[in-house]
């Protein structure tokens, strides 16, 4: 159960008081130093988080620094984003700060940390309007997924190949135009042919639910900020049919 620990934001008009954006994290760790690590992530300060992570590693195990400092800090950022207090730049900077710390912890462990899972993201072939994908990448990164970012104007074969090599829990496609979204069913059918039943979330501009749910594997993404929730579902083992049932229709 969640308890209310801070009353200061109740009935705060964020539209009038937008400077609330620079607030500190709630208390997420009993350890003072790890709390500072978390705070540096919430502030999106990658130099500070690297410095504090190094300090923390003198006394704590790398996994403790990750699990009790860096990740709880990022969870705070997710909360602030969900509540409309934080905006996209803060999410991007915070995930840079978290990743700077995680890289040092991995170095100390001598091996890579297990990420939640991989997600392949791309913007459709012929389409270079990738701002939607930029948002999706930022939010997935922030939520601990390893993003295989293929960028914009990506040929069908390259998306399929990236899925084959990386075996992601989910693949996403964004397209501004109805003329470029025609690449999506081609990708889906090639994935099927290879036996890769990866949930394929498609969205952006003129991409409609009706279109995306007309081909196998397809799940329609209405807003970029649905991406982390969808990736969590895919990670927990939901297949594309279950995800479509939950997120579409």
């Amino acid at each position: 159960m969640k308890y209310l620990t801070d009353y200061s934001n109740i009935f705060t008009r964020y539209d009038l008081n937008i400077e609330v954006a620079r607030q500190a994290a709630r208390k997420v760790s009993k350890d003072e130093l790890l709390q500072k690590v978390a705070d540096s992530v919430v502030r999106g300060d990658d130099e500070e988080s690297a410095k504090l992570t190094k300090e923390a590693l003198q006394k704590k195990s790398p996994m403790d620094v990750i699990n009790e400092g860096l990740i709880p800090g990022m969870n705070e950022v997710s909360r602030l984003w969900d509540e409309g207090v934080y905006f996209l730049p803060q999410v991007i900077l915070a995930s840079d700060a978290m990743n700077a710390g995680i890289a040092l912890c991995e170095e100390a462990m001598g091996k890579a940390m297990d990420k939640k899972g991989k997600v392949v993201t791309h913007t459709a072939e012929g389409d270079i309007h990738d701002i939607g994908q930029v948002i999706v990448n930022a939010l997935l990164n922030a939520n601990g997924f390893e993003v295989i970012n293929l960028g914009a104007d990506v040929p069908v074969d390259k998306v399929v190949e990236a899925c084959r090599v990386n075996n992601p829990v989910m693949v996403t496609g964004t397209a501004l135009m109805t003329t470029t979204m025609t690449a999506f069913p081609k990708i889906a059918s090639q994935l099927k042919r290879l036996g890769l039943n990866i949930p394929f979330v498609c969205g952006g501009g003129a991409v409609s639910e009706e279109y995306v749910t007309s081909f196998e594997l397809g799940i329609w993404g209405k807003e970029a900020n649905q991406a982390p929730g969808m990736a969590e579902d895919a990670l927990s083992g939901d297949n594309w049919q279950a995800m479509r049932g939950k997120w579409n229709g």
Partner: peptide, 15 residues
């Protein structure tokens, strides 16, 4: 001015 949207930048950045 698409990129000045709160979908992308913070309102105080706009201001």
């Amino acid at each position: 001015d698409m990129q000045a949207s709160p979908d992308l930048i913070a309102p105080h950045t706009y201001r």
